[in-house]
């Protein structure tokens, strides 16, 4: 299940020891909508490796500004509150899976 975050729930959601993917998106953004089903798929098939969350940049402008978002979709990977890596634009599922594998390799 993809979690929708607000500025109130953001801090707790990214402060996990588990890898968290946060997708910064907007309703008017075509590629963001295309990414939706891909992220839903990742949320259900890789739930043990990663937590998938979304932030609507129109509704949560403070969060968008805090992370310097100027091009969407922008997926930022977090662990224990720290941003590890950002991924810009639509990518096929395989590309995200590879990134997740790299970030969860021990």
């Amino acid at each position: 299940m993809v979690k929708h975050l607000t500025k109130e729930t953001f801090h707790e959601a990214i402060n996990q020891d588990k890898l968290v993917m946060v997708d910064f998106w907007a309703e008017w953004c075509g590629p963001c909508r295309m990414l939706g089903p891909v992220l839903d798929d990742i949320a259900s098939t890789l739930a043990d490796k990663v937590s998938v969350c979304k932030v609507n940049t129109d509704l949560e402008q403070e969060l968008a500004v805090r992370y310097n978002i100027s091009s969407i979709p922008c997926v930022i990977y977090f662990r224990n509150g720290e941003p590890l890596r950002a991924s810009l634009g639509f990518k096929p599922k395989e590309n995200f899976v590879k990134e997740i594998e790299e970030l969860t390799a021990k």
């Binding site: 008017w28 953004c29 310097n68 978002i69 100027s70 091009s71 969407i72 634009g89």
Partner: peptide, 16 residues
């Protein structure tokens, strides 16, 4: 291109 402020699509990124 992308986060650096250069974009190929105005309708995609103009809102920012």
């Amino acid at each position: 291109l992308g986060q650096g402020g250069v974009s190929y699509c105005a309708t995609c990124d103009g809102m920012f």
